[in-house]
Amino acid sequence: MDPQTTSLLQPARWVDNYGDYLYNYAYFRVNKQELAEDLVQDTFLSALKAQEGFKGEASEKTWLTGILRNKIIDHYKKASTQREKQELDNSRPAVSYNYFFEEEGGHWTDDRGPKEWGVNAGNSMESKEFFKILNACLSKLPEKWAMAFSLKTLDDVQGDKICKALDISSSNFWVIIHRAKLQLRECIEKNWIRA
């Protein structure tokens, strides 16, 4: 464990020690560069004001991450109430189930069924190229779907918290995750695998 994980906070070193970590953390949950930067900045400012609240039970990094996580959830809450009214003129349309599955029987349609990617399970796709395509594909999803998907996949916010923040019911939640994944998977297949 590094020395910063003791009860002492060292704000002067936050940017060097945790700046990139927090930035990546935020970025992969909001998928926007500027917003992620702002969230990191807000986190540092809130943390500076809340220093007395740091009891040294968690590491400095964990404590800062917790503050950032709350900022992200707050952002989601705000975004989901603001978007509500704009949902109709959506430039990021939801693809319907019938696009992927036969209306009767619910089978994959032949041309939309997943193709083999030729990537072994156990491997992951970490290249910059994949990152670019993933981002582009995420930004095509309805915003709420992308939010729910990123939060759930990165797996540190409980489902009921996400539902509350995004104002969706828990049964709807799985449907959203599912549809997001269907759409995302196809987008990646089209743009990356066969590229």
């Binding site: 990139d20 930035y23 992969f28 992951s124 910059k128 994949f130 797996d155 990646i188």
Partner: peptide
């Protein structure tokens, strides 16, 4: 295939969010 890819997607997102073997982050401020 969907099952495999679904797992792959999750793993990839998770590892993009962390340092790679070289200790680099995907993105830098």
């Amino acid at each position: 295939s969907f099952s495999k890819q679904s797992r792959l997607l999750k793993q990839s997102l998770l590892s993009l969010n962390q340092k790679n073997e070289k200790g680099e982050y995907t993105l830098n401020l």
